[in-house]
Design a protein around this nucleic acid. Structure first.
Lengths: 184, 184, 184, 184
DNA sequence: AATGAATGAGAATTCATTCAT
DNA sequence: AATGAATGAATTCTCATTCAT
């Protein structure tokens, strides 16, 4: 019947979970619908297509990071050391509790060559991450060093998430964070 | 008829190219067959199933690395500095010329949660990579430091490949290698 | 809310336009709703089903012809020549301004084999057209000739509308009308 | 299994039958497959898409007419009277035995506004028909008269087929043919 | 009257796989 | 070895329809 069962956000959250664990192309509209307690067709009431869900999912996570994590870099009440500590603490919290790694990282590898809109969104996310780190670092370091370091930090974090995901062991991932903080 | 058009290896190479660019689930047996100039059905003469191709592809790359790159770590004619330099030179050569990043890294995120055999193979590859680096490092550092450093190096390399792949820019990837060499 | 946005007639007119251009089965309830600025579900406030819209659409056009065109044949103030001239003038006016040809002709081919009610309505329309022409002709010709001529006239008009629609050229269609008038 | 069940031509013939009776959009790939004793998916071994079947179907009938009917107009062994008589005899034979009227006429109304390739093929068919009639007529009439008459003849035939189809009565259709022959 | 959310059936198409030739 | 034809299940997506609000 016509009772409201789900919201767009609920569908996105379920989709994100599935995309991270099963991959994008291996997650079907049926899988998503099952997870939401809907039938497949009903998903199209909320989203135009599977790619629409995919893109909205990427944007959803991107926004979450902007609001909750990247924003730390621009918080005027904190000093550099506090910023980097909080930034990494929040990043860790997110990736340790979230099963399946980083949605944007995962989809970067699987979809970015075939889907231009996905690729653009993923690039924007990583650029924002990099920019946030640069904003923290440039107080202590010159521009070039800050940028290099920020880029290294993003790459290292993504690589570590990937290894943590594969080995199902978070030890090494955590070491990385500690090391980064020490550099300040 | 029945010209010896294609060898198993030829099919594997084409499959690897496609898996890296399009992803595993987004590459169909048709795609592979088209790329090999065969028709779908003919692939089953060489491989039992798509998963069989996938697994053989992972093993094929793993073996390539064992033979051509990881082996450097165990070459008794080289000293540590020479080893790490050559190791990184060869790694770079491979990843810079190969379109689409690292097959095992890509499939790690997309398939490792759903396919145990893929996961085991991918884990073995990364373990072998790590072991090779440890073998180089332990001459100069203690065990724990060596392991930590090796793991960091693998993660950083994978993360950098991912970013290189996404940004279509190899600059940062190359910086990483140079930095690693300097640590010796 | 609940503004009186749309009347049944408005929906019918939009539906007729779409049925003529896209065909009956290729026009969805969504298409109709979009065209009316409504959402799908709202159509069911005015019509029981799509077939209901289809049938009402056929009746609507049939009635329009009865009232505005076929009636000419029974107008006692006109003589035969005046009748046929006016009849054809009005038919031409209608089909030249109306995009997509004749609704009942179009749906005759597409739906009459599958939908008995549609078929009956379409048959009634063409019979009424034929009768009107017979009423004009029988003053000058015997019964059999009148009927034959009327039937030929309907067939020729429908065939010409079809060709006009296809070629997007109204020249030949107009020639036909002139020729019919001359026969008097 | 892999035994040959059907040919492309067999599928086309079945599709044509269904398209004429049920209409193009109301005929599903399932309907066609059922009629051929195949499952839906197997149709894609022979045709790229439903539209591909539709277009091939139009071409198939067009070719049949070229070879068996329009060719009469260019047969040097016949005089005008013999040509028109044979032309009409063959046309009648075809349309009287074939259930559901004229494929190209039917699809003209249903699909020509939405599908450019269909429209082009249908236009080519009617132009070829017209040309054939002109070729017969121009021996006896001037160019303009021939063309006018040919166009009228095509329109009248199509209109009559439509009415025959609707009324399930072939009487009037046959009258038309006789009348055309007498004009010579 | 109108809407938003849902449904279940069915649309076209693609998938991995099989097997007689 | 390779092909062509077929399969059945699954894919994304659209359909007409219902109904609580």
């Amino acid at each position: 019947m016509a009772l409201k069962k789900t919201s767009k956000e609920e569908i996105l959250k379920n989709s994100i979970k599935l995309f991270k664990i099963k991959g994008y192309h291996n997650t079907s509209m049926s899988n998503i619908a099952d997870d939401c307690g809907l039938i497949k067709g009903s998903l199209y009431h909320h989203f135009k297509s599977k790619d629409d869900i995919g893109l909205e999912a990427l944007k959803y996570i991107h926004q979450y990071f902007e609001k909750n994590i990247f924003s730390v870099a621009y918080n005027k009440k904190l000093n550099s050391k506090e910023k980097i500590t909080l930034f990494i603490k929040k990043t860790d919290e997110y990736f340790l509790k979230s099963k399946g790694g980083c949605l944007l990282g995962n989809l970067a590898l699987e979809t970015s060559s075939s889907n231009k809109m996905f690729r653009d969104e993923i690039l924007a996310y990583f650029k924002a991450w990099e920019n946030a780190l640069v904003a923290i670092l440039e107080i202590e370091y010159d521009d070039e060093t800050s940028l290099s370091f920020a880029q290294e930090c993003v790459a290292l974090t993504q690589g570590s998430i990937m290894m943590m995901n594969l080995t199902k062991n978070s030890e090494n991932y955590l070491k990385i964070g500690k090391k980064l903080i020490k550099l300040f």
